[in-house]
Design a protein around this nucleic acid. Sequence first.
DNA 1: ACTGGTCTTGGAACCGGTTCCATTCTATCA
DNA 2: TGATAGAATGGAACCGGTTCCAAGACCAGT
Lengths: 335, 335
Amino acid sequence: MPVTIYDVAKQANVGVGTVSRVLNNSARVSPDTRQRVLQVIETLNFRPSILGQRLSRRRSLSIGVIAVFFTRPSVVERLRGSEALIASSEYDLIVYNVESPAKRDDYFHETASNQRVDGLIVVSLTPHDADVARWQSAGVPVVLVDAHHPSLPRVVVDDVRGGEMAAHHLLELGHRKIAFVGDPIHTAFNFTSSRDRLTGLRQVLDEQGIPFRAEFHQAGEHGQESACVLTHSLLSLNDPPTAIFAASDTQALGVMQAARERGLTVPRDLSVIGFDDIEIAEYLNLTTISQPLFESGQRGMGMLLQVMEGSPRAPICEELPLRLVIRGTTAPPPA
Amino acid sequence: MPVTIYDVAKQANVGVGTVSRVLNNSARVSPDTRQRVLQVIETLNFRPSILGQRLSRRRSLSIGVIAVFFTRPSVVERLRGSEALIASSEYDLIVYNVESPAKRDDYFHETASNQRVDGLIVVSLTPHDADVARWQSAGVPVVLVDAHHPSLPRVVVDDVRGGEMAAHHLLELGHRKIAFVGDPIHTAFNFTSSRDRLTGLRQVLDEQGIPFRAEFHQAGEHGQESACVLTHSLLSLNDPPTAIFAASDTQALGVMQAARERGLTVPRDLSVIGFDDIEIAEYLNLTTISQPLFESGQRGMGMLLQVMEGSPRAPICEELPLRLVIRGTTAPPPA
DNA sequence: ACTGGTCTTGGAACCGGTTCCATTCTATCA
DNA sequence: TGATAGAATGGAACCGGTTCCAAGACCAGT
């Protein structure tokens, strides 16, 4: 039923090779032959089957993105960046949403065997050496976004530095009692950003000779509700913090909610700083460490396309800049 | 280099047909032959090429989603729903992000020609009859989410009814001066929801004999900033509204921002009601009309999978329920 | 007229599966 | 024992493109 390249060839009185050459308008075809073939393609309304192309070229013409996808606004923003760059290419974008370690491993495997994708972007997930080896032996280029592996190109931010920036800001405002609300140190997904941000905070406090009290470190499942609960226990302490650094804006929302529930005014009674600068942060007037989310996805895709073009240089680690965005949720501590 | 079905066949001393039968473990193969083939598959670490399968089955084994994608939180939520359902199937999810009418038309065309996708979900975009005809003649099943077309199965909400619900709520609180902030009546994408929600509002006002003043209808580009600007002009009127119905939560954010900028307290000085119940609405304590976003994506995908299984019944229009969620941004008008 | 080179072209082989038909083998029954 | 049905299997044909090789056409130079 559908019209194939053979139909076109017959109709135009040429061989299939010639039609193919016209389609991939590269090889040398005489102008009038090309014209005739194009004419027939037009009248028959022929569109080459992508399935046939994919098999014969041994390329899937699609790029996969594996991410802990929709649970975090930051990830959506990164994905937007990747999509923006791919839209003008010949590739389709396939999304693999990870919701459990098992799912992650599934996808890591699947993308490495049969030629499901020509290239892969992995967001915020750290692959094991075995995963990397599998991708390499399968010849699948992989770029990491917001994750590290020594033998993979990647685009990252310096989370430790980000933690330091938040710490300096709060110290400069006069805070000495600074608490941290973040993810668990060990998560099923091996997330490192929350841990690194805490490290930055502690480094600065150490330098300044300010002890970081154990009870000022609160960790729990990523999310607003959890952060709210953790903040309540912080604010119930005998000597509560005057400032809270949340490992993400989402968690900062929970912190502010807890403050509101206790009748505290931010930033008069409590300063709050977040991380990421997701869209809603501006509306909420949240002071935060801004990282270029959209750009990270875009640059990751850019690097991937380059690698796929065949520039097999040593894996690049591109570091995107962080920026302290001072808005309205931080102020000097109450007198 | 990669191991094929022929390698397996030779090694196992059987024909390729037999290997194929084992792979699709359906046809009758003797137990010990199956065992032997599976053994060889294991030792050779054979994974059938998805590209070969796709061509021979003439199916792309993937499902596309066309959406005005990442610009709206509500769309992300719908997409999550679709993804959740597809993850356990054999299909890959390809996302097509529409950013202009031209892009939309591109995607509408592409998905209808060559066998790019086996099925399609279209979110919040209304296809033309010509588009529908093209998909039908190409045999591509399509399901609409948050959009209408008489010959396509779809999952929708009753936006007019939603407008009525918002109107009743505000009237019951005692408001008589109710304004509306929404999208332009005619958008490049033919969005209807904002228009329908306004219709609902006006119907109720008409019934109650309350005139709807022309200057109380403000329309502009979808988004927070635009809504903020529009609200300022509403609040600058000689006889300003006491309540504003925003066509979406995103726009309600802009409304509240404008109120804040003018030193007005919500809901004491001004009541605000939104639409959608996106995630942030709960945090902001926003009164809104809640629609099941996640579920809409999920149900759409469910319908699509059904249609693809081959239940060619008449196109179903499934209507999801709306729900008034009273939170903290609506109150009786100031005395 | 013959030689050698370039340009254009046809079509077979191939990519890696699925499917169907023909064949072989085995068991059952008259 | 021979006929027959059914199960198991091999492999050619096919899906719809791309690619490569050989061959034909054409031109210039001697």
